[in-house]
């Protein structure tokens, strides 16, 4: 299924720039997720007392918003990626491909 677009696409600087931007974005988010998780595990491993500290004068500890927050952060990052991929990268890719097909 050779597409005639394939040959010229590789030469196009806009295509190269798109791939670079997209990869950078994906790695950035991966590193954020990785760091957040390792930070959380690290806190549990090295400083349990920090997470045990109560917040707001009640019994609820800092660990609860931290743990739930990590779960929500994972969902939000995923949502942000999908949103940006749909809005920005897919559109740029479609424009580049259209330019090469015409």
């Amino acid at each position: 299924m050779a597409d005639p677009v394939a040959d010229t696409l590789e030469q196009d600087p806009r295509y190269a720039a798109l791939l670079r931007d997209r990869a950078r974005f994906a790695w950035l988010l991966s590193i954020l997720m990785f760091a957040a998780f390792l930070g959380y595990i690290g806190l549990i491993a090295f400083d349990k007392a920090a997470l045990a500290r109560p917040i707001g004068g009640g019994v609820t500890s800092l660990g609860i918003p931290a743990g739930i927050g990590l779960i929500l952060f994972a969902i939000l990052l995923t949502g942000f990626y999908v949103w940006r991929a749909n809005r920005v990268y897919d559109r740029r890719m479609a424009e580049i491909l259209a330019a090469h097909r015409s």
């Binding site: 994906a26 790695w27 988010l29 991966s30 997720m33 990785f34 957040a36 998780f37 990590l70 779960i71 994972a74 969902i75 990052l77 995923t78 990626y81 999908v82």
Partner: peptide, 10 residues
């Protein structure tokens, strides 16, 4: 949960 975003991004 944290494996899922990584799976998506990469």
């Amino acid at each position: 949960i944290v494996g899922w975003p990584i799976l998506l991004f990469l």
